[in-house]
């Protein structure tokens, strides 16, 4: 690793810190501005003000806001996160420890589907420009891009789950298997492989197909269009003509020479799409009753569970920052012209 790259990395990581800090600060204050509070949303209107106040005191909600903010920052920076304010007041670390692997197990395959399918179809479309298959793929990309994600999920559920009865409708694993399933990492795929529980693995994978396809397809459209447009530009460039003139085949020119040069804008897009992926994960998890961060977040926002919401968004922000950092490093690996 060159020293300039090291220097770049250090600056880049240092810049990530204020980014995450601003993010979690915003979340803290926005939660406080929202009407309603965690106490009333749990206890309902019938509980006396006195009882509610006692609970507030115990949860530290009566402290001055700056004290609360200080405690919150301290919790976030030590990755301790504190306890949830609702639903049994469990430590947030414990709760997120269950939810985060579920979300990752959903979003990583979804991202892979989006990128692989998007780049593949986009390149194919560019290669067959203005042929019927190109129009077909473009239509598909617009369709898939504009369809609301929960609607796509519902359609899939109806077709594959209800009508054809091929795939499970919701959850991460068959509930009967789940009762005996022992999970250490909460990544069900990893756990079932480790314990050589093949029935559980099969069930997990089957449960994963529809949600990851829904989430993946919703992002595929962007990648198709981006890849196609950039490839078409690339195919026109001189070095492709020069490559053709020295006898390189069209397939190689497209899938090797053009595609690698197209990766730079695609990498940028992957970084940007991470934010959308998280938003999509919230909707997908809700549609498929997937017990991940997204559904957890929606649930806790409704309850005004300040600490839970803040921590969840903090973790999301952290991931988005990490991904964009990784993308910046990948640029340099893909494009020799980029030097930090």
């Amino acid at each position: 690793m060159s020293s300039s790259l090291k220097k770049f990395l250090v600056t880049r990581i240092l810049l990530t810190i204020p980014m995450v800090l601003i993010m979690i600060t915003l979340v803290f204050f926005i939660m406080r501005v929202l009407p309603g509070d965690p106490i009333r949303s749990q206890l309902g209107p019938r509980v006396s003000e006195e009882q509610a106040d006692r609970l507030r005191e115990r949860l530290g909600l009566n402290d001055p806001i700056l004290v609360q903010y200080g405690n919150y920052l301290k919790d976030m920076l030590t990755f301790n996160f504190g306890n949830a304010l609702t639903r049994g007041e469990r430590p947030i670390r414990e709760e997120l420890g269950e939810k985060l692997p579920a979300t990752l197990e959903l979003s990583i395959p979804a991202m892979l589907i989006a990128v692989a399918l998007g780049i593949g179809l986009g390149a194919f479309s560019a290669k067959n420009r203005k042929k019927p298959v190109d129009y077909g793929i473009r239509l598909f990309s617009i369709f898939i891009y504009s369809i609301p994600i929960f609607f796509l999920g519902l359609i899939f559920q109806i077709i594959f789950g209800v009508r054809l009865n091929l795939l499970p409708l919701s959850g991460r694993m068959d509930p009967i298997l789940l009762t005996t399933f022992e999970s250490k990492t909460n990544f069900y795929i990893i756990d079932s492989i480790l314990s050589q529980n093949w029935a559980a693995l099969k069930s997990t994978l089957l449960h994963l197909i529809l949600p990851s396809l829904t989430l993946g397809l919703s992002l595929t459209g962007v990648f198709i269009r981006l890849t196609r447009v950039n490839m078409i530009e690339m195919i026109k460039s001189d070095f492709i003509t020069a490559g053709r003139a020295r006898g390189i085949s069209e397939t190689q020119l497209i899938y090797k020479h053009s595609l690698r040069n197209t990766f730079i804008p695609i990498l940028t897009m992957i970084g940007l799409q991470m934010a959308l992926l998280i938003a999509g994960a919230v909707l997908t998890e809700t549609t498929f009753s997937w017990p991940g961060m997204g559904r957890y977040l929606v649930d806790r926002i409704a309850l005004r569970d300040y600490t839970a919401v803040q921590s969840t968004i903090g973790v999301f922000a952290f991931f988005v920052a990490i991904i964009s950092l990784v993308m910046d490093i990948l640029y340099a690996l893909v494009d020799p012209r980029i030097r930090y």
């Binding site: 001189d238 070095f239 020069a242 490559g243 020479h257 040069n261 494009d335 012209r337």
Partner: peptide, 9 residues
């Protein structure tokens, strides 16, 4: 400037 592939040595 443009007739060599920029990402190939």
């Amino acid at each position: 400037m443009t007739s060599l592939n920029p990402v190939q040595r």
